[in-house]
Design a protein around this nucleic acid. Structure first.
Lengths: 217, 217
DNA sequence: GTCTATACGGCGATAGAC
DNA sequence: GTCTATCGCCGTATAGAC
């Protein structure tokens, strides 16, 4: 077919990668709504037109950011899980508390809620991650097994990965009432199904006071 | 003190109330980002300037919508809980699945994540709701009691109200893998701590296929 | 392949006329 | 109480320079 007149920068461009770094930084700091052509250009020290050369629409920016982040993230998850095949539940619990992961995921999820192209991309990587996580749990507990004789591995997986996301969402607006109680309950559950090897001292999760809401620009 | 020059429409205005109805409708249908002065004015059949007369900034629109909705919602929750003081956990579980409640709450939460005035309003009503819910659970199980001898009432509360929100968020983007497993687990938990009075047939929760993503305007 | 200049209409917001 | 005019930022399309 005849080529469309619109030209787009190469995926391999160094500039493009720098722009995506800035996008992640901006989304983490001030949310996806703070990402505009002009703001992103300023952050990266280029012209707004150049940003548009690599990303014809705003959705293209977010789509590229999500894809790049997801690939990196999936690789990290895979590595973490393969390294701890003896305690996958605990590995998933700690992984799910990772601040950047949780914040970016939630932010992109909110963004995708009403934008079809982003919605389907998020859905796809969410399914891919879940499938991988299920496989790992199935390898330890059996496909129809259970860590504790009560919860199926699917239910346990959703609890262990979902609770941190939910609590993170609340903490993002400054609500933490009874959070410690639920975290304790989940950690006691983990202790019972995947006993700790080292001393029983409970490691506080490294939660910063709150996502930065003030100190930028 | 000297009055500020800016004039604002009365809280009791009929027009103002109609506008807030439209805001709720728009947020549910297409998300908070779809609410603009012009779009809202069109929806309500008035001029954009009139909307601005009642709500000087966009945040004022959302703040008013959140406050009106929260009051209504808190009253409904209070009524539901007082009507079912024998099975508060089940009442909270069903309440938390309410589609409009979950969608509006999540939408406003995402909105509040990076907007201070909205963030604090959401935080306040979230705390107020949680406090009410905790009181009701404390009345049945004791302030330091437990429904099952394991989970504290706080942990149980967060599970029962948080899981639906998390699953709803995922369903919003079209992901449902293993959701049924977790729902089953929670319902079995409820059956064990608040036995059903009627027949054991499980009522499907009335979940529509998906939030409307296409059929509007 | 990389980058820029310019233009258009919609947006939130303000000041002020009727 | 209602509405107009205006400002500066936004997404984005296009035309073209190096």
């Amino acid at each position: 077919m005849a080529s469309s007149p619109r030209r787009v920068g190469a995926d391999t461009s160094k500039t493009r990668d720098v722009l995506l770094d800035c996008v992640e930084k901006m989304v983490l700091a001030k949310g996806y709504a703070s990402v505009s052509y002009r703001a992103l250009a300023t952050e990266a020290g280029v012209t707004a037109s150049l940003v548009q050369y690599y990303f014809p629409t705003l959705d293209d920016i977010f789509l590229a950011a999500i894809r790049r982040y997801s690939d990196r993230n999936l690789a990290a998850l895979q590595k973490a899980l393969s390294r701890r095949s003896d305690d996958p539940l605990r590995a998933l619990w700690e992984y799910s508390w990772d601040e950047a992961t949780a914040t970016l995921t939630t932010e992109f999820m909110a963004l995708g809620n009403h934008r079809e192209s982003i919605r389907s991309e998020i859905a796809e990587v969410t399914e891919r991650v879940r499938s991988l996580q299920l496989d790992v749990l199935a390898a330890k507990f059996g496909r129809d097994g259970s860590p504790d004789g009560q919860l199926s591995i699917g239910a346990a997986l959703l609890l262990i990965t979902g609770i941190p996301k939910f609590l993170n969402l609340e903490e993002g607006i400054g609500v933490t009432t009874e959070h410690a109680a639920l975290v304790d309950a989940l950690e006691r559950y983990l202790d019972s199904v995947e006993p700790r090897t080292g001393p029983a001292k409970r490691k506080r999760r490294p939660r910063t006071a709150a996502p930065d809401k003030s100190s930028l620009s």
